[in-house]
Design a protein around this nucleic acid. Structure first.
Lengths: 212, 212, 212, 212
DNA sequence: TATGAATGAGGTTTCATTCAT
DNA sequence: TATGAATGAAACCTCATTCAT
């Protein structure tokens, strides 16, 4: 059947969409397996999860880093795509927006078990994964931070990269350690950000401060 | 027969010191290699680092978990040994003591690259490593936290285990990511702890407030 | 989707014959190596003998016992498949049939050097090899023995298991010890069986001849 | 103490006796371990069994074959030392003497589990063990056989080497296979020997033949 | 001389990756 | 194009053997 398709001009296009669907299937499968067994999981497992042969994995992602980066780029895209002040609610303070974005970032990391851990793999090719995160998300986070700083709602001595890594780190083990409450600790961290905010002169509620 | 006796008992005593030195060399080497290449580093590398044969590693630490646990127990011992309020300086508030202990914990983790990461290995046998940390350090941290809570210096909704894991996590990548300032983020986290202390109504210095 | 279906099912069928041939090659190679170097021969040697990589051995036979059992099961099948009184010559006495089967069993063991030895390996997994022989061949031998006993041609105090092991044992070293004539000794053993046959009075006393 | 001894002439002799006792201890230990775990048993186990260091094993038996041969030579000595017609009871026929010697041989092999198996090891150095058995025992067995043949009590077509190996083989697994009765099968083999004795002219009871 | 710690070769097994089908 | 069998490098671990004490 495949050969018949190939003989036609249109077959090519039909194949393409098939292949694309297949790539997506692979990304999902890889994400699932990475979450379950870490980024070093046997390729065979990923192929099995996707219900394809190992050769297919290699066809779509020639090297393992290619696959890994693809898996996470896919997910980073979703986060970076988010317009900074997305919701557009003007009642929100910059700090609120920051908190909201961080919450979504945290949810993301906590949900995709293994993702946070993966960011620290020193396997070959993971620099690119890293670059991905840094290049895409740090700017977003940078804007959010700056806005809050400008509003006098948070301290100014925390750099976007620091915060991004810190949040990522706090999410490690969220699904592994029974008692560990990653989200709660991220909250505490954000509270620490707010605390010591230059302008919290007259009151201590660091996260409130509506009037800029 | 007398000669036999001598050799049996004497041999025991004669060799011990050498063997012990060797075990220590191995622990150091393993710590270094774990830091450099993670806890899954080839045993061969550890042996090479220590300048001994692989067999020697196995003689001293029959299974890999044995070695790993030994490496970290050694280091945990040092931390747990610290008397809670050790320094005895009565000018310090509970929060000061907490900060000081956390700083030392942080220094420790940051210094021993790889240690923090190791705490998250899901390799067989690492449960014991975990238990080690939890069993030994969580109680210490628990006391420090409670004292600060009792002094009204920090919020009461953070559990010792949460904090320990969070600190450990924040230290991950300290030596790997060029720009990441782990110690700084731990500071922020502690600030977040202090912030929201029940009733720091009239001033923001979180560590003062004696009266509740 | 249709293409996916095809690849899934069709791939299965296309490769089978190759894989099967390979498995057979492995069995032969393993038999040869076991014969030459015993059942503990390095897997590497077996792979080399078969002209395949080591991984291939493990693909087909995940554990060593799997391979060993397969090698010998293959051979046992041939023996057990033999209909007891197969040849169907009705001129044969039960003892003749017994002798004939034993001769074939002996030939088999003697030919496949190392097989007899293998039956005594105490390596893990060889219980199954054992069971294989016992379960498959002892019943056959039991029938042959009983028939001869019933015909009064052999003594009744030898159990099938005894005989099977004894024959197997006598074949050990057949290919190793220059001067040892295993077949001859099996003959002597069978003569011993016949000897002392109660009272094959009227006929074909194989070699008993009670009344001189 | 040892150095003091060495300085004297007599010390040498005292040492010698110690060493000899030690060697004997080693032989016993090795025999026990070989029986328990086969001739490939770890040297360490033998040293442990003997209660000495591994170095001591190597001092007395520089190579493994040296030890193995020594262990069994020791035991072969006992068998070969037996005067052929030892007991000198004149009521016994040559066949009786043969049977009696074989029984002792069998007992020996059956008792020392692993010995029979060891004779078939193809490990380096075991040729010597073999030579040992062949050189020492085959002549003895040859005499016994010849006497029985001369007396017309057994067939003449079984060579001493054949018989020795056959008996040895029949003893394999005596301690391993639950149901296997090695002694019984040796009996059957001997019966086979007697049966068909060419010269059993006037009586067929092969073991009777009183008048030599 | 006896000890047992150290060595390191060698066997086992697992996967990443290639490639015939 | 997809498959999964085959490959072989690399890690593990176990002793036989050496040698400092």
């Amino acid at each position: 059947m495949s050969s018949a398709d190939t003989s036609q001009a249109g077959g090519d296009r039909r194949k393409r969409s098939d292949a694309r669907r297949n790539a997506q299937t692979l990304l999902d499968a890889a994400a699932a397996v990475f979450a379950r067994a870490g980024v070093d999981a046997p390729v065979r497992d990923i192929a099995a999860e996707a219900g394809v042969g190992m050769g297919t994995v290699y066809r779509h992602f020639p090297t393992r880093p290619d696959l890994v980066v693809a898996v996470f780029r896919h997910q980073v895209d979703a986060l970076a795509a988010t317009p900074t002040g997305a919701s557009g609610e003007d009642a929100e303070t910059p700090y609120d927006v920051l908190r909201s974005w961080v919450a979504r970032f945290t949810d993301f990391l906590v949900t995709k078990h293994g993702l946070a851990e993966a960011l620290h793999s020193d396997q070959a090719g993971f620099e690119s994964l890293h670059a991905e995160f840094v290049d895409r998300l740090v700017p977003v986070l940078g804007q959010l931070l700056q806005a809050s700083v400008d509003a006098g709602q948070i301290r100014a001595d925390v750099r976007p990269l620091d915060l991004m890594i810190a949040i990522g780190n706090l999410c490690i083990g969220a699904g592994t350690f029974p008692g560990y409450r990653a989200r709660h600790m991220v909250d505490v961290l954000l509270a620490g950000l707010a605390h010591g905010a230059p302008a919290s002169t007259d009151g201590d509620e660091p996260r409130a401060r509506t009037g800029s």
